[in-house]
Simulated assay, not measured.
Amino acid sequence: MSAQKGKDLLLKIDEDGDGSFTTIAGLRSRRIAFNAEVVDVTDSESAGRWRELLGGAGVQRASLSGSGIFKDAASDAALRQVFFESRVAAFQAVIPDFGRVTGPFQVTALEYGGEHDGEVTFEATLESAGALSFEAI
């Protein structure tokens, strides 16, 4: 896999819930993490006292965080509204030459910043709020 352009990593939202995603931001830096809790079923008869795990029983979750600049005032307003309403909305993270992660997320942190001689930037953290899908691209 060759290097990809960071500008191609996008955050999209489905504001109306109709399945159409619009780009709200190009992320300058980002992090997406997938986690699964384990369920330990080790008992006194476990071979050699090695830990045993129950497959498929733990809770899975994803966390997406990033910083960047908004595409326009409308996209800023859309993310801000979802945050202040504490609403779960459908989001899509497009990761170049990797895939699309789509599903319900809640915006759990939203920060704004900027230098006196530069543009306004934002940082946001989204936590999964349901089943996610992955589509390779």
Rank of each mutant, 00 (worst) to 15 (best):
residue 26 G to C: 11
residue 43 D to Y: 04
residue 42 T to Y: 07
residue 7 K to Q: 10
residue 20 S to G: 02
residue 81 Q to C: 01
residue 9 L to S: 13
residue 78 A to H: 04
residue 28 R to Y: 13
residue 8 D to R: 06
residue 60 Q to W: 01
residue 14 D to V: 12
residue 30 R to G: 15
residue 36 A to R: 12
residue 50 W to C: 10
residue 29 S to F: 09
residue 68 G to C: 03
residue 84 F to R: 12
residue 16 D to H: 09
residue 82 V to E: 01
residue 72 D to S: 01
residue 55 G to K: 04
residue 83 F to T: 13
residue 9 L to D: 02
residue 69 I to H: 08
residue 20 S to K: 08
residue 17 G to C: 11
residue 27 L to H: 10
residue 30 R to F: 06
residue 84 F to V: 07
residue 5 K to G: 01
residue 12 K to R: 15
residue 77 A to Q: 09
residue 22 T to H: 10
residue 82 V to H: 03
residue 51 R to T: 10
residue 55 G to D: 13
residue 81 Q to H: 10
residue 18 D to I: 14
residue 66 G to C: 00
residue 75 S to R: 02
residue 19 G to P: 09
residue 23 T to P: 06
residue 12 K to Y: 06
residue 53 L to G: 08
residue 40 D to L: 10
residue 14 D to A: 14
residue 40 D to T: 06
residue 62 A to Y: 02
residue 64 L to G: 04
residue 4 Q to C: 14
residue 88 V to Y: 04
residue 67 S to I: 00
residue 69 I to R: 05
residue 57 A to Y: 02
residue 21 F to K: 04
residue 51 R to K: 08
residue 42 T to S: 15
residue 6 G to W: 12
residue 19 G to S: 09
residue 52 E to D: 11
residue 48 G to R: 10
residue 63 S to H: 02
residue 72 D to A: 03
residue 51 R to D: 09
residue 55 G to R: 13
residue 79 L to F: 06
residue 51 R to V: 08
residue 63 S to G: 11
residue 22 T to S: 11
residue 80 R to D: 07
residue 69 I to L: 12
residue 42 T to Q: 03
residue 25 A to D: 05
residue 79 L to T: 00
residue 26 G to I: 00
residue 81 Q to G: 06
residue 16 D to M: 04
residue 39 V to K: 15
residue 26 G to V: 03
residue 57 A to W: 03
residue 57 A to D: 02
residue 76 D to E: 11
residue 35 N to H: 11
residue 53 L to C: 07
residue 88 V to P: 01
residue 19 G to C: 13
residue 53 L to A: 08
residue 41 V to P: 12
residue 84 F to Q: 10
residue 12 K to T: 02
residue 7 K to V: 15
residue 5 K to V: 05
residue 40 D to I: 06
residue 73 A to S: 10
residue 72 D to P: 00
residue 20 S to C: 08
residue 42 T to F: 05
residue 35 N to C: 10
residue 68 G to H: 00
residue 4 Q to W: 12
residue 8 D to I: 07
residue 13 I to R: 00
residue 18 D to F: 15
